[in-house]
Design a protein around this nucleic acid. Sequence first.
DNA 1: TTAGATGCAAACTATTTGCGCAATT
DNA 2: AATTGCGCAAATAGTTTGCATCTAA
Lengths: 149, 149
Amino acid sequence: MDRNGGRSPSGSPELRTTLLAAGHRCTPQREAVHEVLCEMRNHPTAEEIFRAVRSRMPAISLATVYNALESFESAGVCLKLTQGDGAARYDSRTDDHHHVQCVDCNRMFDVAGPPLAQWLASIDPRGEFELLGGRLVLEGRCPNCRRNA
Amino acid sequence: MDRNGGRSPSGSPELRTTLLAAGHRCTPQREAVHEVLCEMRNHPTAEEIFRAVRSRMPAISLATVYNALESFESAGVCLKLTQGDGAARYDSRTDDHHHVQCVDCNRMFDVAGPPLAQWLASIDPRGEFELLGGRLVLEGRCPNCRRNA
DNA sequence: TTAGATGCAAACTATTTGCGCAATT
DNA sequence: AATTGCGCAAATAGTTTGCATCTAA
């Protein structure tokens, strides 16, 4: 079983190992970004991560945060979630799960359901495409906003 | 059966009726955008639609195209497809179907498979969220790019 | 040692907005 | 007649890039 919610432990030597294996470097900035990302479980935007990490590393730049997140994504350390409107969101959970973005408050939530991998098998039955992945990001209304609607 | 591929007929009074019902106006510009969108079956971006519609209506502006597409989407006349990188793409097919965006050529393709509606039933089994919709946009490699890879 | 990362600022892309005029209902 | 949309240009948001310097491997 997954005793860690799909998250790689923060501040661990694992980040370094994984980044190196993917051909990236592990810098203090990246460690800081990773720690912050693992602490924030609300699917933060790059900007939000930037603000949070700047409080412990004031000299870091937004470009470096984007750079770090890109290296994480390419190393499989985090997920980049995109929904039409606004900014991309990042998730340190890398296991197969789904998301709902609330149409009212715009926040993004994890949602339970069968993994996408299970569905992918029934997509493109003729095998025309080499399917590499994809995330299911749904629209909906979160419990809180439903109450206030 | 769906003899029209999920597309509303172009240049028809249906567009007018549907827009009016949704509280929008039907202008010559919107009719032109709709016609072009129905002819382009390659999931064009707003920019591409703009260029195509400008050839028959040179004075139209990009902002008007965005405006038209937004009114179409809100009236259920077209779908707005978003994938993390780059521009949103528009589809005059509004029936439940899926898309793959090629990681090499960036074009977007229709792909066969069970409708999302069928899957939605198994998402969020506790009914915490009021699920309103969502589109499945997958990443993959298209037949043409596979051949040249 | 050296390829890759950093910080800064500027560039870029996609999209939205304010405004005065025109066209639709 | 009144409201909404149009075209234009400027503004915005999010993200990327160029460049000189620095640093992890």
